[in-house]
Design a protein around this nucleic acid. Structure first.
Lengths: 109, 109
DNA sequence: CTAAATCATACCACATCTGATATAAAAAGA
DNA sequence: TCTTTTTATATCAGATGTGGTATGATTTAG
């Protein structure tokens, strides 16, 4: 099971602590994972009830499978693609900034 | 001259409008450039008076030249590396969110 | 219940990003 | 000045991310 898969499990309700603690990452590494997951959630939230994955994919010259991976927190998706997709849904830098700001800073291990 | 170089020139005082207008990007593409530049600036600001580029590079298992490129908005640097570097300087998700939020949304072309 | 639409997973060739290295340029300090 | 420290530029082989395609699973609509 890879990290992204585990993270997805955690996100889907199996969470016993933070994703970070479960995966035994350094605080910085874990914060980066949290940022990616926050952007994944923001993407799905911002796209739904607006357009399909296929439509969004066309808009940013990507593919439907890649949007699916992006929304599911797949590790093979870069932050750059996440942001391109989110912006194409009409979200502003402020929306993105807020999504990142709402992440709780990790406690020291 | 590549995009990153031009963006750097703009950032260094040659700005006549927004970077976006100069480069003739779509609003979404231009916002992404703005986000990258904002993160570059945040990195330099957050690192200086704290550690050298070489020290930061060691912390995140990267190299000094790559940190230099990151701080100069080089196009070969991913947003992921920018965030890894910024977080390693002690910045929080809130700091990052704020840096992104402070970007002005582009006007329609 | 069934067909259509939508989303998820697997695979691949190609492009981009990576750390490492060498070295030049610039800044800081004596 | 001159020496040291710090930052910038160039290059490259290997790793990571990419869109495309095929196809399976799930949801929605009739």
């Amino acid at each position: 099971m890879d990290k992204a898969k585990q993270a997805r499990l955690e996100a889907k309700g199996w969470q016993t602590g933070t994703v970070a603690a479960f995966l035994q990452l350094t605080p910085e590494e874990s914060t980066l994972v949290e940022i990616k997951l926050a952007l994944s959630r923001k993407l799905r939230q911002s796209r739904q009830n607006q357009m399909t994955q296929a439509e969004l994919a066309t808009k940013i010259h990507s593919s439907q499978p890649r949007i699916a991976k992006a929304e599911n927190g797949d590790h093979s998706v870069s932050i750059e693609l996440l942001l391109r997709a989110i912006l194409a849904t009409g979200a502003t830098p402020q929306d993105i900034g807020e999504a990142i700001s709402n992440i709780s800073a990790p406690l020291p291990v």
